[in-house]
Design a protein around this nucleic acid. Structure first.
Length: 497
RNA sequence: GGUCCUGUGGCCGAGUGGCUAGGCAAGGCUCUGCAAAAGCCUCUACAGCGGUUCGAAUCCGCUCGGGACCUCCA
């Protein structure tokens, strides 16, 4: 089976074939660490984490590069050179790098909460100023960039005359030139569609570097081109990011890299869609963001409660990455309940003994259904990461698992090999590929043993019809946030609320 | 204004022309000392109007809604 992914560049699903057999080079646009990450940011990182995990599962050795944008960009071109980082730094009276460090740490922490695997390389823009300057020089030498007043701009018109400018974002240069929008500082550029490679730094600008064109700082798009080129080469397999970056960021990236490396840089472009609130994109500009720390603490007017990072991860995986996903507290609550149910079924499954020598099934129909649902899991993953369908199948299997556990269905209904297969597949899909983990925070196992003791005492009390004692145990545990559940056959299990 | 996406049952969401996704909520039942959990069952929707087709949520057109990008944005 082969993986098919939707390529934004060609606008169709394509069979994925890596440039170098067995290896994949993947670049994902990382965060700008001038502020705290919000729910919207979580989506690409979780989406591409799943892709990374899946490629690895498929046997690829993946070089996964995800940058940290810590150099800051101008808010509007040409405006008093005040980038986002330095502006905030003044407000908070912090060194720019201090600020950057703070938000980088916070971002890393959030990624850990989400159980995202670290990229194999996480380069920073400030650590690659030299590479960026070199790249700009090459573009100037090639004749596709010009310097004015200590700034360097990319000549889009010239590029468009010789290359396929606008293909990724479906943009037509003439339309762009007609845009009526008036921006400050446009007069410096030869053409309004041109974009900055290097910006001259005004005196008050804190973050600044020496360059052949004087003191300044890099334009927004060049860092990704420079770092992707350095670590992945002139042509690499996958480039990911949010849909809102398609233009102008990724379009510019293609132009820069193409001129510099004489090669279309990316084989497969992948873009995740936005998370919305009441149908509107969550974003700084809309003033409707919910920060991740707020999600985890529940400390936000739109939230009815705190949400575990795994619930958010699960929530995101329940939709397809190319669809918008509308945030809502009730939707999150639904995800929380769903995840708990699925996870408990999964844990029950793992506790079952599978006799792999028992090859026969007494319920042929069920056996066939289970096998089909299991086999579809990887098919769905292969189909442009259809995680929603994967989860749907797992939910379809949950009643079978629970019924076997409760003795409603005899374990012999399905073959031992199928049960073992189900155990294996569930583990691989849920933990390895989807990256889900238990929501119960790890402890040293002492809680587990204490709970077992209480369960034993309660079983004893029940058998003696001492319901006062059995209810006391159950009720007081409930007050502590632990739910005790009686099961069929007199067994008991527990879960944290 | 330009380019593009989208409109699915109470809510969230999959849906590649024909085979009722799934989750949550709701109702009924079973199990049960009680409750919860679990299991079984019920709820068959695709904005509207035309068209193509033996057959359309799925393709085409129009209308009405929503959104994204064109400026920093995941």
């Amino acid at each position: 089976m082969s993986l098919k992914i939707y390529n934004s560049y060609t606008r169709q699903k394509e069979v994925f074939e890596s440039i170098t057999p067995g290896h994949v080079g993947m670049y994902v646009c990382g965060p700008t660490v001038s502020g705290e990450s919000h729910l919207g940011h979580a989506r690409p990182y979780i989406t591409f984490d799943v892709l990374y995990r899946y490629l690895t599962h498929k046997g690829y050795k993946v070089r996964y590069v995800r940058n940290i944008t810590d150099a800051g960009h101008f808010e509007e071109e040409g405006r008093a050179a005040e980038d986002k980082v330095s502006k905030k730094a003044l407000l908070e009276k912090l060194e720019p790098m201090e600020l950057v460090q703070k938000y980088t740490n916070l971002y890393h922490w959030a990624m850990k909460q989400f159980n995202c695997i670290d990229p194999t390389i996480e380069p920073t823009a400030t650590g690659h100023i030299v590479e960026q300057i070199n790249m700009i020089e090459k573009i100037i030498q090639a004749g596709y960039a010009y310097e004015i007043n200590g700034s360097v701009y990319f000549d889009v018109k010239k590029y468009a005359a010789n290359y396929d400018y606008g293909k990724l974002s479906g943009r037509i240069l003439d339309d762009l030139l007609e845009t009526t929008r008036e921006l400050d500082g446009q007069e410096e550029k030869k053409d309004r569609a041109d974009f900055a490679l290097w910006k001259n730094a005004a005196p008050e600008h804190i973050m600044r570097w020496n360059s052949p064109w004087g003191e300044g700082f890099p334009g927004w798009h060049i860092e990704c081109s420079a770092m992707a080129t350095k670590y992945l080469g002139a042509e690499f397999d996958i480039h990911g990011g949010g849909m809102d970056l398609q233009f102008p960021h990724h379009e510019s990236e293609i132009a820069q890299s193409t001129i510099c490396n004489h090669h279309n840089p990316v084989r497969y472009w992948m873009h995740n869609n936005m998370i919305t609130i009441n149908g509107k994109k969550m974003g700084k500009s809309y003033n409707n963001v919910i920060k991740l720390t707020e999600m985890f603490s529940g400390n936000h007017p739109l939230l009815t409660q705190a949400f575990h990072p795994m619930v958010i991860r699960f929530f995101i995986l329940q939709s397809h990455y190319r669809s918008t996903l509308d945030f809502g507290s009730t939707a999150l609550e639904a995800s929380e309940k769903a995840l708990k149910r699925l996870w408990e079924a999964y844990e029950a499954l793992q506790k079952m003994e599978a006799d792999s020598t028992r090859l026969t099934a007494t319920d042929i129909e069920l056996e066939a259904k289970v096998l089909q649902l299991l086999n579809e899991l990887e098919e769905f993953m292969d189909d442009d990461l259809s995680t929603a369908k994967v989860l749907a199948n797992m939910f379809e299997l949950a009643p079978t698992i629970n019924s076997i556990k409760d003795g409603i269905i005899n374990v012999t209904a399905i073959s031992g090999t199928t049960l073992q297969l189900m155990k294996d597949r569930f583990k691989v899909i849920l933990e390895d590929i989807l990256g889900l983990t238990s929501m119960n925070s790890q402890d040293d196992g002492s809680l587990e043993r204490v709970m077992q003791l209480l369960i034993d005492i309660r079983k004893e009390a029940k058998s003696k019809k001492d319901f006062a004692t059995s209810d006391k145990i159950r009720n007081q545990l409930a007050e502590m946030g632990i739910l005790l559940k009686d099961e069929k056959a007199g067994e008991m299990s527990w879960t944290k609320l």
